[in-house]
C-alpha cells in the first residue's frame, strides 16, 4: 500500500510544521507578558543586582527568539540553568522549569497526567460506545419509543453544562444513594478496582454529555446509509440483518463519526479539566489554574504546549484511521 504510506508521511510532515508554528505562537504570546518570572522569584527586597542575577539564571536575559530556540532544544536535549554547584538540570524532554515550585515542568505534568488521562480516555471509550450504539438503535427503531428516548437523552445531554450534570450526579449517586465515592483519585497501580470505582461517575457524566452529538450524528447517518442501494443488494443476497447493519450500514456511517471524534479531541481535555474540578481531582487542570494564580509562566506555557501537542498527535492518528477507512481520503 504505497498510497497510504505516502499519505502518512505527508500528514507527519504537516503535523511537525503545525507543532512548530503553534509552539512559536504560544511562546511569543506568553513571553510578551508584563509579569516577570525573575521578579517573582527574586524575593523582597529585590535589588536590581539580584534581579539581574535571577534573570541571567533563568535565561530570561536572552532575546525571545533565543529563548524559544533554547526551549525547543530543551525538549530534545534537556537544559541546564545556571552553572557550578547551584545549577539546575532539567532533563530531556524539558518543557521548561518551574522556579516557584522548584521542579521541571515535565515532572509536574507527568505527575498530573494520569488523573486527566484516566478521566478523558475512559470517558471517550464510553461515549463512543453509548453514542454509536444508541444512534444505531434509534435509527433502526425510527419513530418508535426507543428512538424518541434516545433523541430525548441526546437533547438533555446537549443542553446541560458538564459541571452542572457532574454536580447533580455526585449529589444523586454519591450523597443520596451513597453508591459511589464523591471525590478523589486513586492511582491505577495502587488499586485498579478503586481507580475505576472513583472514576465511574466522572466517566458517565462526560460520556452522557458527549454521546449526545454522536447519537444524533449516528442516527442521521444510519438512516441515510440504510436507504442506499448496496444495503438492498446485501439484503437481496440474503445477508442476516445484523450483518447488514454492522458491516454494510455502520461502515459507511463511520467516516463522519471519526471526523467528529477528531474535532472533539480538542474539547476532550477541556471536559476533563472541568470534570477534575467538579470531582476534586488533582489533574492537569488544577496544575494550570493554580499556575495562572501564581503567575508561574513556565508551567502555563508547558501545559498549554503539551496539551496542544497531544491534540495535534491525536488528530494525526484520527486522520490516518480516516485514510484507512475511506480510500478516497488518502488518495485525494
Amino acid at each position: 500500500m504505497p498510497g497510504i504510506v505516502w499519505f502518512v508521511v505527508r500528514r507527519l510532515f504537516a503535523t511537525v510544521l503545525v507543532m512548530l508554528a503553534l509552539s512559536l505562537a504560544v511562546y511569543l504570546i506568553f513571553y510578551a507578558i508584563p509579569a516577570d518570572p525573575a521578579h517573582l522569584s527574586c524575593g523582597k527586597p529585590c535589588t536590581p543586582d539580584r534581579l539581574e542575577q535571577a534573570r541571567h539564571f533563568m535565561q530570561l536575559d536572552q532575546s525571545t527568539i533565543q529563548q524559544y530556540l533554547n526551549f525547543l532544544r530543551g525538549i530534545f536535549a534537556g537544559r541546564t540553568f545556571g552553572d557550578g554547584p547551584a545549577a539546575v538540570r532539567c532533563e530531556a524532554p524539558c518543557f521548561g522549569y518551574s522556579f516557584p515550585l522548584g521542579r521541571p515542568v515535565t515532572t509536574l505534568i507527568a505527575d498530573r497526567l494520569p488523573v486527566t488521562a484516566s478521566i478523558a480516555l475512559g470517558a471517550a471509550v464510553l461515549w463512543l460506545l453509548i453514542g454509536v450504539s444508541l444512534g444505531v438503535i434509534a435509527a433502526l427503531n425510527r419513530g418508535r419509543l426507543l428512538d424518541r428516548l434516545s433523541v430525548g437523552v441526546a437533547l438533555i445531554g446537549v443542553s446541560t453544562p458538564s459541571f452542572l450534570l457532574g454536580l447533580l450526579a455526585i449529589l444523586a449517586f454519591g450523597f443520596w444513594l451513597n453508591m459511589v465515592p464523591v471525590n478523589g483519585y486513586v492511582p491505577f497501580t495502587e488499586s485498579p478496582v478503586d481507580w475505576a470505582w472513583h472514576l465511574v461517575t466522572p466517566w458517565l457524566v462526560l460520556a452522557v454529555l458527549q454521546a449526545a452529538s454522536y447519537i444524533r450524528l449516528t442516527r442521521a447517518q444510519m438512516l441515510e446509509e440504510l436507504n442506499l442501494d448496496h444495503i438492498t443488494t446485501a439484503r437481496a443476497k440474503g445477508a442476516g440483518e445484523a450483518r447488514v447493519v454492522v458491516t454494510h450500514g455502520l461502515r459507511g456511517a463511520l467516516v463522519p463519526i471519526v471526523t467528529l471524534f477528531g474535532l472533539d479531541l480538542g474539547g476532550l481535555l477541556g471536559g476533563a479539566i472541568l470534570t477534575e474540578k467538579v470531582f476534586s481531582m488533582q489533574g492537569l487542570g488544577e496544575l494550570l489554574i493554580s499556575a495562572v494564580g501564581q503567575l508561574d509562566v513556565a508551567v502555563v506555557v508547558g501545559v498549554t504546549l503539551f496539551s496542544a501537542f497531544l491534540i495535534i498527535l491525536a488528530n494525526l492518528v484520527v486522520d490516518i484511521v480516516h485514510g484507512a477507512l475511506d480510500p478516497r481520503v488518502s488518495h485525494g
Binding site: 477541556g270 479539566i273 472541568l274 496539551s307 491534540i311
Partner: peptide
C-alpha cells in the same frame, strides 16, 4: 487543533 479551554485559562496570566 488548539486546546481552547486550556488557552482561555492560561490567558488569565498575560
Amino acid at each position: 487543533g488548539f486546546p481552547q479551554l486550556v488557552f482561555m485559562i492560561a490567558l488569565g496570566i498575560i
